[in-house]
Design a binder for these strands. Structure first.
Lengths: 333, 333
DNA sequence: TTGAAAGCGCTAACAC
DNA sequence: GTGTTAGCGCTTTCAA
């Protein structure tokens, strides 16, 4: 199983009886260089005959661009948000012949340094951060080094830079109206603890609930850990003053609500109504199906790719792009 | 935002007052070249001072290896099996300083040709196929061209080549014993239609069920489509002779079983016992929790990477490596 | 122990 | 219209 010698443009040139430059001109359709049709054809024939396949590597080296970008998240790769977005990014990039040079790195100690090393070592052309919580200093490093990058997340970080986000929180009033219509008076929010920056979900919940004139509500937070989530929700549902409607800040909180309710003998949607913020592959599969405000993850990926490509080509790009979410009704509400 | 000129080994050489060759010797720890300690130190200092970061690209070009491999699946990227495995592949490869040059391509028309083009264009060093159904001719193309590759899947294809698989079907007898112990006499299998090759699941089910002396069982297949799955399972559970225990060929079939049972007023695990083959992020989150034979997906990825690296270094590698699955008990059985 | 120089495969400025 | 040539950043043979 020895290494084959791969065909180079020199081979094609020899075969076609032209120079290497001509091969390059033909294959790249260079604007201001006119090639005689028969020469062009000779090159094309040679390419086909030899089954020539230009080396991206060499090309990238010459042009000082690799046509590949890094994608980064601080979650598990198996996180649904990330995977779905990645799919969009991939499709978006491939339209411009860009490639993903995947990284899924947790935020390590010297993350910024590693980021730049990776960027340099692989001659990346840019970065997409999908559901990664960026520190201020990371922004600084990227900007200082003139690295094109785009952030994809649920909501804007407000730190400048280019971001693709969604308007899912604007569906809260609509969601509340639905809860009310279905008879839930006492509402509660359960969701993850705020992490690095102001999480707009609790505030949005408060505003929405007050808009509907309810005073008797609660916002409950806990770390993103199954046991603690279960615990918190059990306490909530066992309390004498338990809510009739629950909005979960993430799908996982929603699933735990469903599961806990069943264990306590509460019927959903009979005794309790539930809706969740965010997208999951399981919303239609769980029992009962989960009503949710779903994020346009795939589109966010595609759009992120578009923006990054624009940036890499030194075009001016809009700072924050907001894509519409959608309230999807299922059995839980 | 103009392109910075990146530091090259030439810059380091100049800074350290040595030649470019010496920089290379030092950084690569070349065996049979002795460098004076002070020279070495000078180089190292210059590297640190300039924050030099060698170009993988240029190195790959010179060595005719890119230190990167392609990873391929025929599923959606958002497939849990694939992503979890990918995580393992990534970690495995990075131990050898290999990089993933991700592709997730559906089996298109001229898949083989594209595969080789991609291989050549990006100077890949090898391929890993994770949950991709390979045609015979793809095997042929890869072998003819001397491309190192490894297949990761649930069960061996039996087509030769190097494969990393798991023994999950060997847990069926154990699973049946459990069903019997919990009181399920009538068993049934529900799962996806066989696709490109012999799916060992139905046969393994039959053998296992017969081992336990039950004659009255059924194997039910349908396309991997939510509506059809629901339909099939509804019919099964409504039949007068309905099974008391169901083994689902994939997690999705398991979730639909749970959901359908609930809708028909059947209690799990009271009226019906359920277990599924395969891994999912929702097994612990669904209601009730799903007992399942879980695949060592991450480890399969790591092992696949190990095998491929061996192959790329022209070592002899074992043909088929089987990793142990694990029966994880939850509430559904 | 170190350096000079060639060359991996490509592109592009310039020459003809 | 097409060819010559230099050079992207690296490794490695050969010479010193």
């Amino acid at each position: 199983m020895k290494k084959k010698n791969r065909i180079s443009s020199k081979d094609v040139a020899r075969e076609a009886g032209v120079s290497q430059a001509t091969v390059s001109y033909v294959l790249n359709n260079v604007e201001h260089v006119k090639i005689r049709p028969e020469t062009r054809q000779a090159v094309l024939d040679a390419v086909k005959k030899l089954n020539y396949c230009p080396s991206h590597i060499a090309r990238g080296m010459k042009l000082n661009r690799s046509m590949s970008v890094g994608v980064i998240t601080d979650r598990s790769v198996t996180n649904y948000n990330f995977m779905k977005t990645l799919e969009g990014i991939k499709d978006g990039l491939s339209r411009y012949n860009y490639t993903i040079n995947l990284i899924f790195s947790k935020q390590e100690e010297n993350f910024d340094a590693e980021l730049m090393d990776y960027y340099n070592a692989n001659r990346l052309d840019g970065f997409i951060f999908a559901f990664a919580m960026l520190e201020d200093r990371t922004h600084d490093v990227l900007r200082t080094n003139g690295v094109p990058y785009v952030i994809i997340d649920s909501y804007a970080s407000g730190r400048g830079g280019h971001e693709v986000v969604t308007d899912h929180l604007s569906h809260l009033p609509e969601l509340f109206a639905l809860f009310k219509k279905k008879g839930a008076e006492k509402m509660a929010y359960v969701g993850p603890q705020v992490r690095h920056r102001a999480d707009p979900r609790p505030l949005a919940f408060k505003e929405a609930v007050e808009l509907y004139g309810q005073q008797d509500y609660g916002c409950h937070f806990c770390p993103f850990n199954d046991d603690q989530i279960r615990n918190m929700i059990q306490n909530l549902l066992r309390s004498p003053n338990r809510p009739e409607g629950i909005i979960a800040g993430t799908p996982r909180f929603g699933f735990h609500t469903l599961k806990t309710a069943a264990e306590l003998g509460l019927k959903v949607p009979g005794d309790l109504l539930v809706a969740s913020l965010g997208t999951s592959a399981f919303h239609g599969l769980c029992n009962p199906g989960m009503t949710a405000v779903e994020l346009p993850l795939y589109d966010m990926g595609v759009t992120g790719a578009d923006v990054l490509v624009g940036l890499m080509n030194e075009k001016h790009m809009e700072g924050i792009i907001t894509l519409p979410s959608e309230l999807v009704l299922r059995e839980s509400l």
